[in-house]
Design a protein around this nucleic acid. Structure first.
Lengths: 157, 157
DNA sequence: AGAATATAGTTAGCAAGCTAAGTATTGTAC
DNA sequence: GTACAATACTTAGCTTGCTAACTATATTCT
C-alpha cells in the first residue's frame, strides 16, 4: 500500500517538473513580451552578454543548453529585430560569430531589472542553502539521465 | 562581484530545469518507443489507470497538469491504437468519459516494470528525504509562479 | 421560465524544443 | 598531399505544449 503511494509520487515528480518549467517560462514571457522579446530570445541575448558578446553559435547553444537548430530560429528573429549580428569568422570559415548590436546592448539594459525581479519573485521564500541543494539534485538527476542515454545509444550501435 | 556570480547562477537554474525536463522525457521516450508509446501517451494511460479507469477528459487533463487541447491529440492517438475508448456521459452530455480498453490494460501491464525502472535509474543516489525536499522546493517555486500569474492576469482586466 | 454565465469539449494555429540529413570547411592519418 | 573523419552550420519537418475562438450543455440569477 505504501509502496503503491510511493510509485504515484514518483510519477508525479516528472510532471511537477514539467509544470514548473512551463510556468516559469510563462511568467518570464509575460514580463518581457511588451518589449517584443520571448523567453528564448531574451535568454539568448542575456547569455550572449555574459559570454563576452562575440562567440560562435555553437558556443552559445552549448551555454544555453539547447541544440544548434533550436538556436538558429531565435538568432534569426533577433537579427531581424536588429539586436544581434552574425559575422563570418576569419580563423574558421565554417563558424559564424554572434555579436550584440548597440540596439541589443541598449535593450539588455532595459530588461535587466525586470529579469532579476522575476527571478527574485519566483525564488521567494527559498534560502540560498536550499537553492544550492535544489540545484545539486537537479544536476544529479540530469547526470543519471545523461548516463542512461549514453548507455542506450552506445548499445544501439 | 559575488552578486554578479549569484545572478549568473540564478539564470542557470531555469535552464537547468528545462534541460532536466527534456532529458527525463527523452529517456522515458526511448524506453517505451518500441511499444509504440510516446511519453504523453503512456503517462496518460498510466494516469488513467490510477484515477480509476473511467473519468472525464477534464479530470484527466487536470491530473496530468496539462490543458485540455493538449490532451485531445494524445487521446485521439490512443483511441486510434485501440488502447482507450471515449464514451458519452449520461449525467452530463457535454462530458466524454475516457476508459481503458482490454488492450490498453494489457499494454499497461507490459510497460509498468519499464516505467518503474526508468524512475529508479534516474533517481539513483537520492535519498527519500532529499527527494521530499526537492519536491517541496518545486512546489514552492510553482506556487510563487502561479501567484505571480494570477496577479498579472487580474491587473490586466 | 428565461436570460446570462459558466463549463466540457473541440478545432485551428502558434511556439520552440528536437532529430535527420545535407553542405562547407577543417583536422587527421596514412 | 590526398583521402577520411569530424565539425559548424543550415534546412526541413516532427512533437507536444499552449492560447483563442467556437459549440453544446449545464447552472445560476431574477
Amino acid at each position: 500500500m505504501r509502496q503503491e503511494l510511493e510509485r504515484l509520487k514518483e510519477l508525479s515528480l516528472a510532471e511537477h517538473l514539467a509544470r514548473l518549467h512551463r510556468r516559469w517560462r510563462t511568467v518570464a514571457e509575460i514580463e518581457l513580451a511588451p518589449l517584443g522579446l520571448t523567453y528564448p530570445r531574451w535568454t539568448a541575448l542575456w547569455k550572449l552578454l555574459r559570454l563576452g558578446d562575440k562567440v560562435s553559435q555553437k558556443v552559445l547553444a552549448n551555454a544555453l543548453e539547447i541544440e544548434l537548430p533550436s538556436l538558429m530560429r531565435t538568432l534569426g528573429q533577433l537579427e531581424e529585430q536588429g539586436l544581434i549580428e552574425r559575422h563570418c569568422c576569419d580563423k574558421d570559415k565554417r563558424a559564424r560569430i554572434v555579436a550584440l548590436t548597440p540596439a541589443g546592448k541598449e535593450t539588455l539594459k532595459t530588461i535587466e531589472t525586470r529579469i532579476i525581479q522575476v527571478r527574485m519573485d519566483l525564488l521567494e521564500g527559498i534560502s540560498p542553502t536550499e537553492l544550492n541543494e535544489f540545484e545539486r539534485i537537479i544536476s544529479l538527476i540530469t547526470d543519471n539521465a545523461n548516463q542512461k542515454l549514453a548507455k542506450i545509444t552506445s548499445t544501439d550501435l
